[in-house]
Design a protein around this nucleic acid. Structure first.
Lengths: 331, 331
DNA sequence: CTGTTAGCGCTTTCAG
DNA sequence: CTGAAAGCGCTAACAG
């Protein structure tokens, strides 16, 4: 690979000093229009591209960069958050470097980005210990999950409270046999299925016997549909279903169609997330809605705090966002 | 803001030289385990965080960074591409810095990123001249659009061919009155509606009188639904509709449901994009499918070429990807 | 094993 | 208006 064209090369080619080149390319005035043109022409000719590192090193204006790990681009929940984050981050002067952890594992994504960013953010799945190790000292803002180690900060969502409310309300509407569809996401990091916290809340509030009303499915529309079929097959008296997330819940609603099961007449379906997409299905999806805007803005508050402290070690910060039930047609 | 903690501060605090600090934090061996611990402890205590700029400046390993502008996070088409891009880019050793142009305008997004990246990529809307100006000399890989200026490279999709094929096939299936739903996206950058190239292809192949069979709608599911209602309202004999994109087409399919119009019995509906989501509606959506994988990998080829040439000015490169009709149920 | 010397490529003084 | 000097914070290459 050819040696990089530097400001010196341009200066030499244009017969001026480096500083003059700087003045020309940065539109700084205090420079003769003619010399400027000559310099610019030389830049063009040599294909000169200033080094962003050298420039940023010397310029005092701190550019803050965040590494954001997107859990999945196939679940609108995560992409909607990514979009919100990008907008809000830009407003607050953050650059966002993204990586997907859908195919790549978290550790290597973190590792790859660790030289480029000041803080990490994302929905992480790995153990705290592995995470911290992969971060090389860069602080972490964890979404929808608590961290236990120094350098870990978090914005949690009180899903438990949402589930409690939802189940209570479903009971109030007459539901007697409430089932749940859980996600098999744990299989991505562990060799065996581990029940999700959401399932834990369900069993806690749905009471005795609820554990056998749980079916596990792949985390997708299709997976949700299959799980729904399995659930009502095994328990025909099911009259309400809490679903791990909206994506799967939408699949369940569509499966109910195919199975000729009236929703919400025969079975009520309630998702978790609050996807906009939930409005596009028939019947529209009732859901435990997570305020993405609050989630993102709290997370950015933490990032800002970290940046203000020059990314030095701050005592762990924790925020919590409360979900609310978005009553639409399916429940 | 407190002065930054540098490697010198740590060295002094630990009573060693900077070089030794480097060895400790970079796990380089050739260092006494005890000193290493002492240094690490000092880093911890002072809250030392290495400057990524200084490090990258001195390390010869070139880290290539791409600025990717996401047109919308509310159309799965763009997020699916973003996901594919992130994966493929990581494999090829690119960092991807993203910005959303949904709320922010392109020029300011480009401007903000111009100091951080080596190449820009995205679905751009602005005029070539404005674009080039905002890029500050950084080369551009334009998706699904040709560029006319030096420094602009592109991966286009031969939508025209797709539309030709689709219309011919629809005719073959008996369609006589074919309508189209166009997007009003041009209103985002221009004060008045400008018909899209896709509309142009439609009119070209649908023939005389087809111009009056075009309805313009907002670029969303709801907008597609409304436009569909308007179209069949104005032209009850419509028996096929080509829709600007899948998102709007899905809206049209759902509207047909509400209007009691049989699809594809009474009206055939064909979208453009090839969204996975098109499989989740009933009837499933027939569409002119764009091979996202090919699009992304061609775009990365161009970026790689640019990087190999050290981002110097290369003659404009153009690639073309051919779409294919994905026959599903709606047409 | 550790310290010293030289830069990386750029911008900021401050003289001319 | 232009140039010379002085670093930004870090690491590679060499000494010791």
């Amino acid at each position: 690979m050819a040696k990089r064209v530097t400001i010196n090369d341009v200066a030499q080619a244009a017969g001026v000093s480096r500083q003059t080149v700087t003045r020309a390319i940065n539109d700084m005035g205090e420079i003769n229009e003619q010399t400027k043109q000559r310099v610019l022409e030389a830049c063009q000719r040599l294909g000169y591209r200033p080094s962003r590192f050298a420039r940023n090193l010397v310029v005092r204006k701190k550019t803050r960069a965040m590494g954001y790990l997107v859990a999945s681009f196939r679940n609108p929940y995560f992409t909607e958050i990514a979009g919100d984050l990008l907008n809000a981050a830009a407003e607050r002067g953050w650059h966002v470097v993204m990586a997907s952890t859908e195919t790549e594992d978290e550790a290597s994504a973190l590792d790859m980005l660790s030289g480029q960013v000041d803080v990490f953010m994302g929905h992480f799945m790995q153990d705290d210990d592995d995470l911290i190790k992969a971060c090389r000292g860069i602080p972490l803002v964890m979404l929808e999950r608590a961290g236990s180690l120094p350098g870990m900060h978090s914005v949690e969502v009180d899903i438990r409270e949402g589930v409690r409310e939802a189940i209570e309300a479903l009971r109030g509407k007459g539901a007697r046999r409430i089932g749940m569809i859980d996600s098999a996401y744990s299989l991505r990091t562990s060799p065996t299925y581990v029940s999700s916290p959401r399932r834990g809340y369900f069993e806690e509030f749905a009471g005795t016997g609820s554990a056998e009303m749980v079916v596990v499915g792949e985390e997708s529309m299709a997976g949700g549909g299959q799980a729904f079929a399995k659930l009502v097959g095994a328990h025909p008296d099911t009259d309400a279903v809490l679903v791990f997330n909206d994506l799967m819940a939408i699949g369940a609603v569509q499966a109910s169609h195919a199975l000729g099961i009236d929703v919400p007449g025969k079975v009520r379906i309630c998702g978790i997330d609050g996807l906009t997409l939930g409005e596009a299905v028939h019947p529209t999806l009732t859901t435990i809605s997570i305020d993405r805007h609050a989630l993102v803005s709290n997370a950015l508050d933490l990032a800002d705090a970290l940046a203000t402290a020059d990314f030095g070690e701050l005592p762990p910060m924790r925020r919590t966002v409360r979900p609310h039930i978005l009553w639409r047609e399916s429940a």
